[in-house]
Write a protein that binds this DNA or RNA. Structure first.
Lengths: 130, 130
DNA sequence: CTGGATCCATTTGGATACTG
DNA sequence: CAGTATCCAAATGGATCCAG
């Protein structure tokens, strides 16, 4: 009852939502090696805007996955670090990313196949590739 | 580098997007035990609309994660089943869901704490500036 | 029974500019 | 440096109705 992901009201869904956020996953991976500053995170994670990164970090902080430490210095410095809880997420996340790395080609291939099978008879119209 | 999740152009992101889709995860879990019909899937997975479920299934089919078999019967019957590729996703996904089940309470607790800390003026600042 | 089609509210996330 | 503020485009997902 307490851990049923199929129940829409089960908090497990919350976790899936968090994992579902691609940035969270990358943040965990980045912080796995140790604390990082904001700009370091932004630079490491390609294609994320400051706004979204901040949102992600705040959400993860609320969820107890990481800590945010502000140093009263000039220039300002803020360091993010995984909590033990956050660290415990590392393994499952790595399982996913490893699967991704190993099977990306198969997925791409399947997608190509579907595309060709679908477009063979009458191509013409350029289909927006999602 | 073909397997770098940090590269926005890397196909690995595609996988994360697929996992990120909460329904995909639940579909994999549901089909782990064997093929299922559409309505069975819809009923098992709480809170999903037919439209979205169809979208999810079609996307997963394109990606080679499952097969869609139509029986020429009345009433119509359509069965979905995981491919070997889809089955290989089972392990990593279970890793995530197990983590979720084990740590949901900790996350909820952290969230409650953050809420209270934010709502009450003086919880005796344990940390410098926030 | 299995979805396709349509409409629509809400959310999400990106670009840009600016501040303590 | 580390964000915040604002605006906005696009995508997501739900409700509903209908069709093969």
């Amino acid at each position: 009852m307490r851990g049923d992901p199929f129940d829409p009201n089960c908090p497990t869904r919350l976790i899936l939502d968090r994992i579902g956020d691609k940035w969270s996953v990358l943040v965990v991976l980045t912080l796995s090696d140790g604390p990082r500053r904001f700009s370091r995170l932004r630079d490491t994670i390609g294609g994320v805007t400051p706004k979204v990164l901040t949102q992600t970090l705040r959400a993860m902080e609320r969820d107890g996955l990481l800590t945010r430490q502000v140093f009263a210095e000039v220039p300002p410095r803020v360091e993010y670090a995984l909590t033990p809880l956050g660290h415990s997420l590392r393994r499952p996340i790595e399982a996913i990313t490893e699967w991704a790395q190993e099977n990306v080609e198969a997925v791409i291939a399947a997608r190509e196949r579907a595309l060709h099978a679908d477009a063979s008879p009458a191509p013409a119209a350029p289909h927006p590739v999602r």
